[in-house]
Design a protein around this nucleic acid. Structure first.
Length: 300
DNA sequence: ACTCGTGTTAGCTG
DNA sequence: TCAGCTAACACGAG
């Protein structure tokens, strides 16, 4: 585990939004003349060549995001219909690089002026400038292109991603809508509240670090069942999630959260000084304040 | 030299 | 039906 302040900047919702902005700002309305879709793990369930065949001759027309999923809509010869959507998910280690027209972008391989979205700690020379770890790529008619670089191949690129299976986007989600999403279903879930927070079909965009940060701000123990939470608890959690997201967007990522640097052995709660505790909740490494985040509801 | 964590999901078990 | 577990991916950090 990285120490305080050096938590790996895995793309969570704020980083993905910056990547979406890069795509919207640089990858639209340029004719696709080549596609590198050789990596059939990143493009599963598509076989090599399928994405190429689906994209050649089209242009990207808009860049969308819901939670940590992005997708690019495409043009068709019939503008009423449009082509397939190209889904892009950065996983834990992906970044997107958009290069301008070849004439204005310098020598091949030099990415000065390129737009980079997502986040990864590799330095530009080793990673971005050399184009290492390219898992997917699109070349535009002007000579520039869009590349997906990912050392760990945890990114995903596919046609028509099932974004309808995602819950509402976490960013800007009103506390009432948040509570509705968390308690939806025939019965209120008995699952740990953190597991529910991490379920992208419930709310889209909450990752492991953001979940710990929001629960800590709301002073709710991560292992408490959703069905044990009162309306006020869920509303407070919804507000904490928005506060944590707003801070993450403003300060450059979820890893800048207040409690994140103290998710480590010997860490102390930055509010009350009590020891931070750790354990697995929902199968994920979890840290919480031993004093302020109690495992059962206390009668107030 | 080893272990772990980070996101997602298919496939399985209870 | 729901919840939990594992494997897969590949790397950097400790």
């Amino acid at each position: 585990m990285p120490g305080p302040g050096t938590v790996a900047p895995v793309p969570e919702l704020p980083e993905v939004e910056s990547a979406r902005a890069v795509l919207a700002g640089g990858a639209l309305h340029r004719r696709i003349v080549d596609v590198d879709d050789h990596d059939d793990y990143v493009t599963r369930p598509h076989a090599p060549g399928e994405l190429r065949a689906a994209l050649l001759g089209r242009t990207f027309t808009a860049a969308h995001r819901r939670g940590k999923s992005m997708w690019l809509s495409t043009s068709d010869s019939d503008p009423e219909h449009g082509g397939p959507d190209l889904g892009v998910h950065l996983g834990m280690s992906g970044i997107v690089v958009v290069a301008g027209p070849a004439a204005s972008s310098g020598a091949p391989g030099s990415s000065t002026g390129d737009l980079v979205g997502g986040d990864y700690r590799r330095d530009r020379e080793q990673f971005v400038d050399r184009g290492a770890y390219q898992r997917f790529g699109v070349t535009f008619a002007d000579g520039g292109g869009l590349r997906l670089l990912d050392p760990r191949r945890l990114s995903r690129v596919r046609l028509d991603p099932p974004v309808e299976a995602l819950g509402p986007d976490a960013l800007g989600l009103a506390p009432v809508a948040f509570r509705a999403a968390m308690t939806a279903g025939r019965r209120v879930s008995t699952a740990p509240v953190k597991a529910r927070l991490l379920d992208q079909s419930v709310v889209a965009g909450v990752g492991n670090l953001l979940a710990d940060e929001a629960l800590w701000r709301a002073k709710i123990h991560p292992a408490r069942g959703v069905d044990t939470l009162r309306r006020a608890d869920l509303d407070r959690l919804g507000r904490s999630l928005q506060d944590a997201l707003a801070d993450a967007v403003a300060h450059g990522g979820v890893h800048t959260g207040t409690v994140i640097p103290f998710r480590r052995a010997g860490g102390r709660c930055p509010r009350c000084g009590a020891a931070m505790e750790t354990g697995a909740v929902g199968g994920r490494t979890t840290w919480w304040c031993a004093r302020e985040q109690r495992p059962v509801a206390h009668q107030g």
